[in-house]
């Protein structure tokens, strides 16, 4: 039980710590990064750079592993098709990200930083997700 539940808890905690340290839980920081035509704040480029470099190394390790450390097999996405749904959905997400300066991870992490505001965002986000399921049936 612990062997199965501890890794996601540790992963989530590291993730949340990284988001807060990197400034992703500060909407002004995020919107400042997106404001390339105005008073640009490059901090988030360092966040993304640091995360992508570490993960690029992790993908190399993965190639030499028959199975994950705490699970029987890898369960990873394998699609490569570019669809209107992917692009349209990502565009909608980007508009929302730009409006409030929050994406899903920081929105949830910010529940301990500014609980009322973060809760409004997270509940609305879940409502939006539920709406897609409602319209499409299962996902």
């Amino acid at each position: 039980m612990m062997r199965r539940l501890l890794p996601p808890l540790v992963s989530g905690s590291l993730f949340g710590a990284g988001l807060a340290l990197g400034g992703m839980t500060d909407p002004a920081r995020v919107r400042g990064f997106l404001d390339i035509f105005g008073d640009w704040d490059p901090t988030l480029a360092f966040v993304m750079g640091g995360a992508v470099i570490v993960m690029a190394i992790a993908w190399r390790f993965r190639e030499h592993m028959a199975h994950p450390l705490f699970a029987e097999k890898f369960s990873l996405p394998d699609r490569s098709d570019l669809t209107g749904r992917l692009i349209g959905g990502s565009a909608l997400f980007g508009v929302g990200w730009g409006i409030a300066g929050l994406c899903p991870g920081p929105g949830i992490a910010a529940l301990v930083i500014e609980p009322a505001s973060a809760a409004i965002f997270v509940v609305s986000m879940l409502a939006g997700m539920f709406l897609v399921r409602l319209v499409e049936g299962n996902a």
Binding site: G89, A100, M129
Partner: peptide, 10 residues
């Protein structure tokens, strides 16, 4: 923003 993020990420 939350609604757009929710719909868009799904």
């Amino acid at each position: 923003a939350g609604l757009l993020v929710g719909v868009g990420t799904r």
